[in-house]
């Protein structure tokens, strides 16, 4: 499978504050990859670097084998970019914006894909984007990307400001499109339930590093949430293979990639005074919180 997007040894600092060091990942063709992380872990920094709007202190980002910072301008027609908050030219109406963008994509522009989506919106053709709701704006931004018909879609926090209906509409439309056309998608979102319906693979970032990168199905089938009872006042001291253990009212909660038998053995080996150990699989949001912690 071809690699569409490849970030190699990215290191970035804001002033003296390290965002991450030696970050590398790649996205193969036809996959939808979601970048998950808490606020401040570098999601937007990564999006900015790979869309060419931030020069990393070290490392490089290749898209279609070309360094994004030196990529010939004509290659950008293969990349669809959705900015955080579905930013578009707010002084244009839906007809003007389509006319504007279509000039840049001769031979590939799918006007009908844009208007198919626009027809679902209850907006007058002359209504400017600034006077639309967030949901309507998201559909305009999505419609423009679909009409551009890019090979790679880079979407920064696509669910920001959308109500559940529009979030569902956006993610379902995007998923159908990406699967039918074998498109590659790289996206971030704060709302992880939406990601679970949409993405094939995920990268979970913690401060300064990648915690895990794997297909969502594999992550959810290999990660276990463990719950057990411990004596009051017990301070959890577990091996590194258990993520972010927390004790609330004598109940210890943690998660781990260790299967139950190995996990129990590890707890015994570390002398954890547990009883009533239970375990189970979790959804993506719980997996994310389990791996990155609540704080």
């Amino acid at each position: 499978m071809n690699t569409i997007l490849e970030c190699k040894h990215l290191t970035h600092y804001y002033g003296k504050r390290k965002i991450y060091e030696d970050l590398s990942f790649e996205v193969p063709q036809g996959r939808i990859l979601g970048l998950l992380g808490k606020n401040g872990t570098g999601k937007t920094t990564t999006i900015n670097i790979l869309s060419g709007y931030l020069e990393p202190r070290e490392g490089e980002c290749l898209i279609f084998g070309e360094n994004i910072r030196t990529m010939p301008s004509h290659m950008r027609r293969r990349i669809g970019l959705l900015l955080e908050g579905h930013v578009q030219y707010h002084f244009m109406n839906i007809v003007q914006i389509e006319k504007f963008y279509s000039s840049f994509y001769p031979g590939q522009w799918k006007k009908e894909a844009y208007y198919e989506l626009m027809n679902k919106l209850k907006v007058a053709p002359g209504q400017i984007i600034a006077r639309m709701s967030n949901g309507q704006r998201s559909q305009v931004a999505l419609g423009l990307i679909l009409a551009q018909d890019p090979d790679l879609l880079v979407l920064d926090d696509f669910s920001l400001g959308l109500d559940p209906g529009y979030r569902r509409l956006f993610s379902d439309y995007l998923r159908d499109y990406a699967q039918a056309e074998n498109k590659t998608v790289f996206l971030t979102s704060h709302i992880i339930q939406d990601m679970e319906r949409l993405i094939d693979d995920c990268i979970i970032m913690d401060y300064g590093r990648i915690l895990t990168q794997k297909p969502v199905k594999e992550l959810l089938s290999s990660l276990y949430q463990y719950t057990c009872q411990v004596p009051e006042g017990y301070e959890p001291q577990l091996p590194d293979s258990f993520y972010h253990p927390s004790v609330i009212r004598g109940t210890l909660e943690t998660c781990s990639f260790l299967p139950p038998a190995e996990a129990e053995e590890a707890l015994k080996k570390h002398g954890v005074p547990y009883r009533s150990l239970s375990f189970g699989h979790v959804n993506l949001e719980d997996a994310f919180i389990g791996l990155t912690g609540k704080y």
Binding site: S51, Y53, S73, I79, L83, V87, Y89, Y105
Partner: peptide, 14 residues
């Protein structure tokens, strides 16, 4: 406003 210039600079044009 809201870094709209990114859209302009992303267009496939020098």
């Amino acid at each position: 406003q809201r870094k709209c210039l990114k859209l302009t600079l992303h267009l496939p044009c020098s």
